[in-house]
């Protein structure tokens, strides 16, 4: 029997054959999904795929690229966003 904390679907179940020939189930936390761009849904580079407890141990610069919208938008999408912002800014003047 697993411990009560492991009796959820958020745990992964690995079947392991022991040296005695029995099949046992090992429980481990599921890997979180890949971070994706909020606009084009492509996977982001520079954002680690780790559990939040492991992310806490990293430094701020290791968690996301150091630029506006870093970690939420990909680089071509930020470029397009900046260009559109620039256009809007000077339209009324």
């Amino acid at each position: 029997m697993p411990t009560p904390a492991q009796r959820t679907r958020s745990f992964r179940k690995d079947r392991v054959t022991t040296p005695g020939g029995k099949v046992k189930i090992h429980y481990s936390k599921k890997q979180p999904g890949i971070a994706k761009c909020g606009n084009c849904k492509k996977p982001l580079s520079g954002v680690p795929r780790k559990l939040p407890t492991e992310l806490k141990k990293l430094k701020k610069t290791q968690k996301r690229p150091d630029r506006p919208y870093g970690g939420t938008l990909c680089s071509p999408c930020t470029k397009a966003k900046m260009k559109s912002k620039n256009m809007e800014r000077w339209e009324n003047d």
């Binding site: 150091d66 630029r67 506006p68 680089s75 930020t78 900046m82 912002k85 620039n86």
Partner: peptide, 11 residues
């Protein structure tokens, strides 16, 4: 000009 890439994007 406005910079559109890198850490200085939007400045």
């Amino acid at each position: 000009c406005m910079k559109t890439a890198g850490r200085e994007a939007g400045k």
